[in-house]
């Protein structure tokens, strides 16, 4: 398969801070790559370099086969960008924002108007089309940002934390939009702090921390590597704790006691019914039982041995 995005050995420093310390990436055409990492890991810096907003100190990157530094202008006509930055003009209406971008991309006035109307309708923003963007809710703003990056029908889309700060409903809406775009053949590079989001959307995930790639693979591979889910059991009676620990330890690798819960990392969902059966056989009454997705923190702990630090985000 052709690679739509390739990066090799990207390095970028801001003063003393090394935002990227030799990052390699490859995204196949028509797929979604999830770039996963905590605040300050270097995700935004990587996207800014790939989107031609920033030149790397070392290394090279190609987008659509074109060098992002030497052929920056051509790269720009292939890509769409949405993120914490790359936003809209808040004092203009949604429709005006989209029409302006259409005009800048060389559309005639009627074409720009038609494309804006089409996107506003598609993203359920037609009712708010003539309101200033600053009056939009968080979810509407994000949809407008997305629409703004799609005006020129880009073949490649960079989404930098597209759902950070959104409520679950708005987040689902953004996910649906992204899935629709991928179905149309758009290649997407998505950064996120949520394992769940990368799992939902990405065919491949790259985990970065402190400007380095620390793991990569399909969501399934990554989960196998880290234990994607956490099983947590709390017996009704404290006296049963040891029995529960024994049962869980038989089925999962490492059982730990944490606030009255026996927890263990599991990769096989079949563990859950098995645990229920054995606990029943052992005559243990269960107070609480849960199988939940690992948080990014837990994945990090598994991958690096340290928790995802809440360091200051390097956005510039």
């Amino acid at each position: 398969m052709t690679k739509a995005i390739v990066a090799e050995g990207l390095v970028k420093s801001f003063g003393q801070t090394k935002a990227l310390d030799g990052v390699d990436l490859a995204v196949s055409s028509g797929t979604v790559l999830g770039l996963l990492g905590p605040n300050g890991a270097g995700k935004t810096t990587a996207v800014r370099i790939l989107a031609t907003l920033l030149a790397p100190d070392a290394g090279m990157a190609r987008v659509g086969g074109l060098d992002v530094v030497k052929d920056a202008h051509r790269v720009r006509s292939l890509i769409g960008l949405t993120g914490q930055y790359a936003s809209v003009d808040e004092s203009l209406t949604g429709a005006e924002n989209l029409r302006l971008l259409g005009r800048l991309l060389g559309m005639s006035r009627p074409d720009a108007r038609a494309r804006a109307a089409e996107l506003l309708r598609g993203f359920h923003l037609d009712d708010a089309a003539d309101r200033a963007a600053k009056t939009y809710s968080g979810g509407m703003r994000r949809r407008l940002d997305l629409a703004a990056s799609l005006i020129g029908r880009p073949k490649l889309l960079f989404l930098d934390e597209p759902t950070t700060g959104l409520d679950p409903r708005a987040r689902n809406e953004v996910w649906e939009i992204v899935r629709g775009l991928v179905a149309e053949g758009v290649t997407v590079l998505l950064t996120t702090q949520y394992l769940d989001e990368a799992d939902q959307l990405a065919g491949e995930i790259v985990v970065i921390d402190h400007g380095r790639v620390i793991a990569s693979g399909t969501p399934a591979e990554l989960k196998r590597q880290t234990g994607a889910q956490v099983l947590a059991v709390r017996p009704l009676l404290d006296g049963d704790t040891e029995k529960v620990r024994a049962v869980v330890a038989e089925l999962a690798a490492k059982a730990e006691l944490e606030n009255g819960f026996i927890t263990a990392r599991v990769t096989d969902p079949a563990v859950l019914p098995a645990v229920v059966r054995r606990l029943d056989d052992a005559g243990v009454t269960v107070g609480e039982l849960a199988l939940r997705t690992s948080t990014l923190d837990e994945v990090f702990l598994a991958l690096t041995g340290h928790r995802a630090e809440d360091s200051v985000e390097v956005t510039k």
């Binding site: 031609t52 720009r76 790359a86 936003s87 809209v88 800048l104 991309l105």
Partner: peptide
């Protein structure tokens, strides 16, 4: 600061 400048910089203009 609002990010509109970066949006413009990412366009082929």
């Amino acid at each position: 600061h609002k990010g509109f400048f970066d949006r413009l910089q990412s366009l082929p203009i």
